Amino acid sequence: MARTPAPPADHSAAPDDGPAHDELMDRLARAAAGYYRDLTAAAAVHGLTMTQAKMLILLRQPLPMRALAGRLGCDASNITGLVDRLEARGLVSRHLDASDRRIKRVVATEEGREAVRRVRADMRGTAEAFARLDEEGRRSLYELLGRLHPEEPA
């Protein structure tokens, strides 16, 4: 007996116990847009593009260039140019992977980590938004965001 596929879920109707998926997506999109506007403006003050700032933020630990491309949502061929520009400014360096010399890992330099600290310090809109939350609210937001999009392995 052939099985018929289930109809697609209707995400427009609100469930009985909370906001509908569309409402959650709209609110998440608004929050993300505010964050990226703030990041873009703060990065520009320090001579960085938003993408360069995002890359530096991702480099809390060394990452292979391919992993950076995936996390930034861009083609691997674009990463070389981005890394070249940041490397020329002394913000990142490239190192061959000890276990596989075909892989290049990108590392934020101390200057790169300092650039991230300065950019984040200038993100006043985001800081003000977080300040509107009490400690429990910040903890809950942190936990919920972690559940929405768990960290990817390097």
Results as ranks from 00 to 15, higher is better:
residue 11 H to N: 05
residue 10 D to G: 03
residue 122 D to L: 13
residue 118 R to G: 02
residue 53 A to G: 05
residue 87 E to S: 01
residue 28 L to D: 04
residue 31 A to L: 11
residue 33 A to W: 15
residue 150 P to M: 10
residue 2 A to E: 12
residue 111 E to Q: 02
residue 24 L to M: 04
residue 64 P to F: 11
residue 144 L to Y: 13
residue 19 P to N: 07
residue 109 T to D: 00
residue 65 M to Q: 14
residue 80 T to Q: 10
residue 24 L to V: 03
residue 16 D to G: 07
residue 36 Y to S: 03
residue 143 E to P: 04
residue 134 D to N: 14
residue 14 A to L: 04
residue 95 H to N: 01
residue 57 I to Y: 11
residue 16 D to L: 10
residue 85 R to E: 05
residue 137 G to I: 06
residue 101 R to M: 03
residue 132 R to S: 15
residue 133 L to A: 08
residue 147 R to N: 11
residue 91 L to Q: 00
residue 9 A to D: 07
residue 107 V to I: 02
residue 120 R to F: 09
residue 21 H to V: 09
residue 57 I to Q: 06
residue 78 N to F: 15
residue 123 M to E: 06
residue 32 A to C: 07
residue 63 L to N: 06
residue 68 L to E: 11
residue 24 L to D: 07
residue 18 G to S: 03
residue 45 V to T: 05
residue 12 S to T: 05
residue 90 G to F: 00
residue 124 R to K: 14
residue 13 A to Q: 00
residue 4 T to L: 15
residue 26 D to F: 13
residue 19 P to C: 07
residue 122 D to K: 09
residue 102 R to K: 05
residue 103 I to W: 00
residue 27 R to I: 09
residue 4 T to H: 14
residue 69 A to C: 15
residue 62 P to K: 11
residue 44 A to D: 02
residue 40 T to M: 08
residue 79 I to T: 03
residue 75 D to L: 15
residue 90 G to R: 00
